[in-house]
């Protein structure tokens, strides 16, 4: 049995080793340990995405990158770990917007980092927000839903993420735009409101397109509207909120952050690597399977969005809804 174990472990190691190649000079020096800090829990959508990205980054950069999960407190642990790591370009990690911004802007979270603790490297994907109902729901589109909410103020139950999250603000924005009030139910994970929706305890759920897509394909859910200015390439048959008369836009983007003070060449190295990854056929294929739309943004553009997000959220967080 010991022999078998050795054989298996060595074959596993071999399988992982064979996928890397050698390249690059200058920054990443040989023999340095490179770490990718992931804030999503092991095996969650976010974690799988970062593992796929890391695997492709390894191919492009020719370096081994170690994924470390620091999950919990809505990526706060991971951000904390990134912000306190050595700014030498060998530690980077998950940056989810606007989730991350909301953490350091929320005083109750007691975050020990701020916007200027990080350099945004590049955006990799962006998943627009979406509102979904059960496939057998009487609400066929956003109008049906809003009409029902108007007829029954405060009665329609909608899963609105955890309190003070993007999903929560989405529902507040919808209430304001449509002039309705709904009953907001806060759950602490994405799977939970979807389970409640399928189980009939909720009437609708606010999350992102990627969170619903599989269940839409399997005929269990229907997305009423995509919170974007154009239809999702992964579900072109679903109308946007804008088409239905609500100028509402939202979504969750994921990219890479590196601690402030990291040399420019390192940031550029990783930004270029990410760019190459987002253009590779394998990554595109993997992302299509995960139901996640690729959206690459270079460090300059991403930094601009990073700043805009902070400016946009600051007044909402301080108004203390």
């Amino acid at each position: 049995m010991k022999l078998k174990t050795t054989v298996i472990l060595s074959s596993l190691a071999l399988a992982m080793w064979s996928s890397t190649s050698v390249l690059a000079a200058g920054f990443p020096e040989e023999g340095k340990r490179i770490t990718m800090v992931v804030g999503s829990g092991v095996g969650t959508g976010g974690d799988i995405f970062y593992r796929l990205l890391t695997k492709e980054l390894e191919k492009v950069s020719g370096k081994n990158i170690e994924v470390i999960n620091k999950d919990g407190a809505g990526t706060q642990f991971a951000l904390q770990a990134i912000s306190t790591s050595k700014p030498d370009g060998y530690t980077m990690g998950q940056l989810a917007l606007p989730t991350a911004t909301m953490i350091w802007l929320d005083p109750t979270k007691q975050a020990q980092f701020k916007g200027d603790s990080f350099i945004p490297v590049s955006m990799v994907m962006s998943d627009p927000g979406a509102t979904a109902v059960r496939a057998d729901s009487p609400y066929k589109n956003m109008k049906d839903f809003i009409d029902a909410a108007k007829a029954n103020p405060g009665k329609i139950k909608i899963g609105a993420g955890a309190r003070n999250t993007r999903q929560h603000f989405d529902v507040l924005a919808l209430e304001k735009a449509a002039g309705v009030t709904v009953q907001k139910v806060h759950a602490d994970s994405t799977a939970q409101p979807v389970t409640l929706l399928i189980g009939g305890q909720l009437d609708a759920v606010a999350e992102s397109v990627g969170d619903f897509l599989n269940m839409v394909k399997s005929g269990q859910l229907r997305i009423l509207g995509v919170w974007d200015d154009k239809r999702s390439p992964l579900a072109p048959e679903i109308p946007t909120m804008e088409e239905q008369g609500y100028k509402l836009y939202s979504g969750a983007s994921r990219g890479l952050a590196i601690p402030a003070g990291t040399p420019k060449e390192a940031v550029e190295f990783w930004d270029n690597a990410v760019k190459k990854v987002t253009e590779s056929a394998e990554f595109k294929d993997g992302m299509a399977k995960l139901g996640l739309p690729i959206k690459y943004m270079n460090s300059q553009d991403y930094a601009k969005l990073y700043k805009e997000t902070e400016d946009r959220i600051k007044p909402i967080m301080s108004s203390g809804n």
Partner: peptide, 27 residues
């Protein structure tokens, strides 16, 4: 139903998804 009840099962769901499969009533 495609519902992951725990973190470990969410990983399995991920394995399905990475292979372009959607667990659920139609699987």
């Amino acid at each position: 139903l495609g519902i992951p009840g725990s973190p470990s099962i969410a990983i399995l769901l991920g394995a399905f998804m990475m292979n372009g499969l959607a667990p659920g009533p139609l699987l």
